[in-house]
Amino acid sequence: MRAGAKLGFFLLFAPLVLWLGLLIVIPHIDMFLVSIRERIGVAEYQTSLANYLTFFTEPLYLVTFLRTAMMSILATALTLVIGFPVSFYIAKIAKGRLQSALFLLTLVPFYVSELVRTFGWMILLRETGLFSTLLQWLGLADQPVEMLYNDVAMMVGLVYTSMLFMVVPLITTMESLDDSVIEAGYDLGGSGFSVMREIIIPHAMPGIVSGSIIVFMLSLGNYLTPTMLGGKDSLWFTELIYSQFIVRFNWELGAAFGFMLLFLSSLIVWGTLKLTGQTLEKTMG
């Protein structure tokens, strides 16, 4: 009986261990090993930190790196600002069928792939697209307007792609807030603003933090949206990694970039948790 229980335990654990081991731990170890070797001749390598040194000495890499981080933070903040009222409405104001219908509506766009959704934006924003034609028809523009290939278009795409991952944790945490607690806030003299600040936001904090972490990581690691909607100046760090691996065939530098990105996202997530006084268990549990 005990042996059977043990076997069951291993069988249940095996997929998780395989998944973590094969797809995450082993590739990362290999990547790390690749990142710390330097090519000195044909098929000749030595261990050094030269790749990391290249990263810090080449301004384009460093600037793109910091820019990607800042833009991801901005995308996260925008997603939060837009997603919070939406989630509040769905969780606390809408009732019954309207509530489930609205929740479903936030999910529906994610039934199609990210690629198709991004093409949707291209159809709307391109020179011969819907918005451009509409502006001309209204007489607000006298020639086609190109709205693609800039930071704003990219930001729109990033926020849109991430919205669901902010809204779901926010709705879940806000639904767990008893309506009478909000009413008690008003009953004791609170205004809409103070109830929001002292009761609703503190209660939703775990959801805000976990949603922000997910959205931030997704934006930071996004490749498709910046590539398709961003312009020449909107270089994303993932594009650099891609070009090192695929275009330049410089796996060593690409691996070092990959590790810098991992380090950066871990650092920012850790910093956010410390700053908001949340723990990973509390936000993800």
Partner: peptide, 28 residues
């Protein structure tokens, strides 16, 4: 409701879990 000279003890009390006791009583 927030201006009425009336206060309410709710069925499930509705204390603010995000505050300590002092914060709860001092809220109003």
């Amino acid at each position: 409701p927030n201006k009425r000279p009336v206060n309410m003890v709710f069925q499930h009390l509705a204390l603010f879990p995000m505050m300590n006791i002092e914060g709860n009583i001092g809220y109003g």
